Amino acid sequence: MKKFEDLMPPVDRIRKLTLPALSQRRMAGTSFEILNLAETVLDSLCKRGKKFDLFTEYFLTVSAQSLNAWLGVPNAYRGEHERLYSRLSPDLGKGEDSNPEDALEQLLDSFVRIASNDSIAPGLIDDLRRKQVSPTETGTICCLMVMAGLEPTANASALACLALGISDMSKVFSFSDLNVDELLRFDGPVFPGAFRWATEDTNIGGTAVFSGEMILLSLAAANRDESVFPSAKDLVPSRPNASQHLAFGAGLNRCVGAPLAKIIIQSSITVIEDFEFRKIETKWRDFALRGFVSIPAVPA
C-alpha cells in the first residue's frame, strides 16, 4: 500500500470536491445537528455528577461526533472511528495503542470500506461517491479532514471558553453573542505558526534572510497586529474586521473546513454557557498546537 502522503490529492482538488458539502445551505442544516450533539454530550457528562475531562470528553468528543456526522460515517462505524481519532495524537493516545501511524492506516482502511458500500448516509462521503471519486481518494480526503479539523477545532473551542471566562467581556455579553472570528483572532489554536523557506536572498524588517533558510510566520502575532486590529490584546465582541484573522491561514492553503469548524466552536461554547462548574483545571500541551491535553472539571 502507498504511503499516506503519496495518496494526498492537490489542495485545489480537495477544495473543489469538498466545497458543496461546506456550502452555506448545508452548513445551516448541519448547525442544528451539531448543537444537539453538543447538548447531549455535555448533559450526559454532567448527569454523572463527578469529575470529568472537559477537553477529551466534551470538546474533543463534540468535534469527533460532528466530523462523523458531516462526513456521513454510518452509525455502526462511529464508535470505532472516535477511538481511532483519539489515537491520531501522541499526546492524547494511551500506551502502545496510541501509535498514530497505525491508527491512520486503520482509519483510511475504514473510510475506504465505507466509500465502497452501495448504501451510504448523507454527507461528504456520499457526495464524493456521486462524483465517482475512487474509494481510496475519498478515504484519503476524509482522513485529511479529520486530522486537520479534530484537535484544532476542539482546542479552539476550549480556548474560546477560557478567554470568555477571564475576559471582562464575559460579564457583559453571553457566550452566544460573541463573534467566533474574534475569539479565533484573540487566541487561536495554531502554534507556533507556518514555516516557509526563502527562495532567494532578501531582507525582512532589517534582518537578512538567505536563500534556503527557514522562516517562521507567527499567525498568532499577526492576529495581534495593532495596525490591523486596534486594541488587539483585548477581546472585542463587536470588532468589525475580526474575520481578517489568520487562525485558518490564508490564500490557497486556507483551512478548507473553516465553515464547519466555526459551527462546531459556536455550538460547543453556546451549550457550555448553561452549565456551571465548581472547579476547572487546565493541562496544556507544549508542541505543535496551542491547546490542551486535558481539562479536569467538577460540575456544580
Rank of each mutant, 00 (worst) to 15 (best):
L162M: 14
L178K: 13
M169E: 15
E182I: 01
L84S: 03
L178P: 04
E105A: 13
C142N: 09
Q132W: 10
R130Q: 13
R129T: 12
G149S: 12
N117V: 07
A115G: 04
E182N: 09
L107M: 15
S116D: 03
S134Q: 06
N117Y: 09
D102K: 14
E80A: 11
N179P: 02
V190N: 13
R87M: 10
L71I: 04
Y77G: 00
L178R: 13
L107F: 06
L104M: 13
L164P: 08
A121V: 00
N68M: 08
F175Q: 12
L124M: 02
N99V: 04
A158F: 01
Q132N: 13
S86Q: 13
L150Q: 11
F191S: 15
P100I: 02
L150A: 07
D102F: 12
R185W: 10
V146P: 02
S119K: 09
A148M: 09
D97P: 01
A160F: 08
G72F: 01
S66R: 08
E101M: 14
H81F: 12
P152L: 06
S66V: 08
V172T: 14
R196P: 06
E151C: 01
D126N: 13
S66D: 08
A76G: 14
L159D: 09
Y85K: 07
A194M: 14
R78S: 04
Q132M: 11
V190Q: 14
E82T: 10
W70D: 01
V146M: 07
F191P: 00
R129N: 10
R196Y: 03
L128S: 06
E82F: 08
Y77R: 02
A156G: 15
L124T: 04
L144C: 13
F191A: 15
D187Q: 15
L144Q: 15
A160E: 08
G188N: 13
P189I: 04
G95F: 05
L71P: 00
K94L: 12
Y77F: 12
S116T: 05
P122A: 06
R78H: 05
L88Y: 04
L108R: 04
S89G: 03
I125T: 00
R78L: 00
L124G: 03
L84P: 00
R83V: 13
S176K: 14
R130K: 15
Y85L: 11
A121Y: 00
R129I: 10
V112F: 07
V133H: 05
P122L: 02
I166Y: 15
D118N: 10
V180I: 15
M169C: 13
D177N: 14
T153E: 10
G93L: 03
E182S: 07
G149W: 05
C161S: 13
L88E: 06
Q106L: 11
E182Q: 10
A148G: 15
N68F: 03
S157N: 08
R130L: 12
L71A: 05
A194Q: 12
S98M: 07
L159M: 09
S98V: 03
P122Y: 00
L128A: 01
L159C: 01
D181L: 02
L144K: 12
G139S: 01
I125E: 01
A121L: 02
E151L: 11
L108K: 06
E182V: 04
F186Y: 15
